[in-house]
Design a protein around this nucleic acid. Structure first.
Length: 293
DNA sequence: AACCACTACAACCGCGACGAC
DNA sequence: AGTCGTCGCGGTTGTAGTGGT
């Protein structure tokens, strides 16, 4: 069986839609609804194929569309969902009322994808390319208990983290004595390790925890910087289960916790990466004017 | 001013899925 | 079960807008 064309293409208009065409399609659908896209153009008096009408309505004319830039939250969520779902844009779009799969796909291809590449992260696998630097910024807000971006932070970090882990992210101020009941040892360490592994990828990592990091141990907590140079092996069987074991001395990667202020800790970032990352120009959403209403 | 490179996004195309007959 | 029509999805292309030279 040969494939039938979606419509009779002879004499049909293609390319950008005019205001008049938008008017016609809009009026028709608002008054008659959608029963069969194939019949829509004829009934609406349009020289377009049904497919084109459907696309125009779904991606542009639908009154419930949310127009405007994506928020940081939306962007993070897109990356997170893409990590889980891949290029299933309609599935991803279903998590964003008012956004279309086409819009999200375009946003991914034109912006997010490039930025991930600049950060050394493969947009397909969400894992670092070979040779990813081990010194990247991670800022953790201990008040909100979330990993959050700085102006130069690759926001892929919170996005790659599973939602559960993001919600549980905790950071300890090493200038304070923290109540032992407040945090468990592995919780804190696991979060830090997890943040790092989220950035650097891999299923197994050994981390050299450097000066300034307070580590709670099962036998009791320890806020003494002398615990530095402790080496851990973190095994990530899945995103929700992290097993930590203390190992001898070998470390594959190292991170530093350089300091903190106002409840915020930072990992150093490579200056060359920093210059590429301009996330600050995002505007918050605004409702578009619908010219036909 | 003209040209070029780049970006963002609208629109198109081919194909698979699915329901009706 | 097979055929056909329609819809929806994902990849790709076309083009307007913008900035740099």
């Amino acid at each position: 069986m040969g494939r039938q064309p979606c419509c009779e293409k002879v004499g049909l208009k293609r390319g950008p839609w005019t205001v008049d065409e938008d008017h016609r399609l809009m009026n028709f659908i608002l008054h008659n609804g959608i029963q069969c896209w194939k019949r829509v153009p004829k009934l609406a008096g349009l020289l377009r194929c049904g497919k084109s009408c459907r696309l125009r309505w779904i991606n542009y004319l639908r009154p419930d569309l949310k127009r405007g830039d994506f928020t940081e939250e939306e962007e993070d969520r897109i990356i997170q969902l893409h990590g889980q779902l891949g290029n299933r844009w309609s599935k991803i779009a279903s998590h964003f009322p008012g956004r279309t799969d086409n819009e999200i796909k375009n946003y991914w291809n034109t912006r997010i994808k490039k930025r991930l590449k600049l950060l050394g992260v493969d947009p397909l696998t969400h894992k670092p390319y070979e040779g990813t630097k081990d010194e990247n910024f991670v800022i953790i807000d201990e008040n909100t208990r979330t990993v959050s971006p700085s102006s130069s932070l690759p926001r892929i970090v919170p996005a790659i983290l599973s939602e559960e882990l993001r919600e549980d992210t905790r950071v300890v101020d090493h200038t304070k004595t923290v109540d032992e009941d407040e945090f468990t040892s592995d919780e804190v360490t696991a979060d830090l390790l997890n943040n790092y592994v989220a950035l650097c990828g891999g299923t197994t990592n050994s981390l050299l925890l450097d000066e300034g990091l307070m580590v709670h141990r099962q036998a009791g907590h320890c806020n003494n910087p002398s615990v530095s140079q402790q080496t851990f092996s973190a095994s990530f069987a899945d995103s929700n289960n992290i097993s930590l074991t203390t190992s001898a001395s070998e470390s594959v990667q190292s991170i530093r916790v350089d300091g903190h202020s106002n409840g915020v800790r930072q990992w150093p970032i490579e200056s060359s990466v920093q210059s590429f990352l301009d996330w600050d120009d995002l505007n918050y959403l605004h409702q578009a004017d619908y010219p036909f209403f």
